[in-house]
């Protein structure tokens, strides 16, 4: 066998080190879910794989941890899925229709609409968080899914993405369709949507992860514990850990893991779509 070159060995060493840097913290979290809380208080994370994972999982997912007794892991998981999927679907539907109107129609106020929509790309929700909260409060949407999801949709990322994509669709396609007798609705349903399948999938993955991982907004909008998402729940977990005599590390670590697993699986399994969507959205 040929001796590997030194530079190749170094390349692999760097990549392995990088992979470990990114992986070890979560492996540590995983290990800590397998040992009893009493052991964690004494030794912290170790290399030992214990047998407590099932118990911890059951405790985290089925037993309530808050005051109201309503925020079990299951209910938080459900809320996270509602937020992730609701946000992604809402964003895609609204973005696609708006982009379709802007790209494919003669509109007198098209430029104005364009600027009104794309200015929203400039200011992230975080900088207008308090007034947004007030607006949602005034509309009576605190602790509702609408209040959680709709304000997050109020930015044009998906619209911009679909606009870019529609513009790259050859002009002749709409012309051919018009000669073939397709009106605007038929063209959209028969041709543009099927053509955008990959783009929709890519956008869905990115938006699902983005929605799932929202923290600040859910923290402000949801005060009822049965409305908590997993990521929102992290705050409470940390606070509970601080106060308790025997902190429930097992339960909290399982919850943190559950908060991570679905988006990670989505990103890993649909990697090529995800990368395509991410790198093409910003060109």
């Amino acid at each position: 066998m040929r001796k590997p070159k030194l530079s190749t060995v170094i390349d692999h060493a760097v990549l392995i080190a990088g992979s470990l840097f990114l992986m070890l913290p979560l492996l540590m979290l995983l290990q800590m879910t397998t040992i009893p809380d009493t052991e964690i208080i004494q030794t912290g994370p170790s290399l030992k794989i214990g047998d407590q994972f099932g118990d911890n999982l059951e405790k985290a997912m089925l037993q309530a941890s808050g005051f109201s007794g309503e925020n079990t892991g299951m209910s938080m998981l459900k809320n996270s899925f509602i937020l992730g999927i609701g946000f992604a679907v809402g964003k895609i539907v609204i973005g696609m229709t708006a982009a379709y109107a802007i790209v494919y129609f003669r509109l007198r106020f098209a430029t104005l609409a364009f600027w009104l929509i794309f200015t929203t790309l400039l200011l992230p929700l975080e900088v207008r968080i308090l007034p947004s909260y007030e607006v949602v409060q005034r509309l009576g949407m605190l602790n509702t899914y609408q209040g959680l999801i709709i304000p997050l949709i109020a930015s044009a990322t998906a619209t911009f993405f679909f606009r870019q994509f529609f513009r790259s669709v050859p002009e002749e396609l709409v012309e051919a369709a018009r000669i073939d007798g397709a009106g605007p609705v038929k063209f959209f349903v028969d041709i543009l949507v099927p053509l955008s399948k990959t783009m929709i999938a890519a956008m869905f993955i990115i938006m699902f992860v983005y929605g799932w991982n929202q923290y600040l907004w859910p923290t402000m909008i949801t005060t009822d514990e049965d409305m908590y998402t997993l990521v929102r729940g992290i705050k409470q977990i940390v606070q509970v850990l601080e106060g308790a005599v025997v902190p429930e590390f097992g339960r909290s670590n399982v919850l943190a893991l559950v908060a991570v697993v679905p988006p990670v699986l989505v990103v890993v399994f649909f990697q090529s779509w995800f990368v395509k969507g991410l790198t093409e959205s910003d060109k």
Binding site: E172, A176, A182, I191
Partner: peptide, 20 residues
């Protein structure tokens, strides 16, 4: 009159076939 109603057919430079 709308393109669809002019009783014409057109062949485009890049063919404009519906890819899906």
């Amino acid at each position: 009159i709308d393109p669809a109603d002019r009783d014409i057919a057109m062949v485009f430079q890049n063919y404009a076939l519906y890819p899906h």
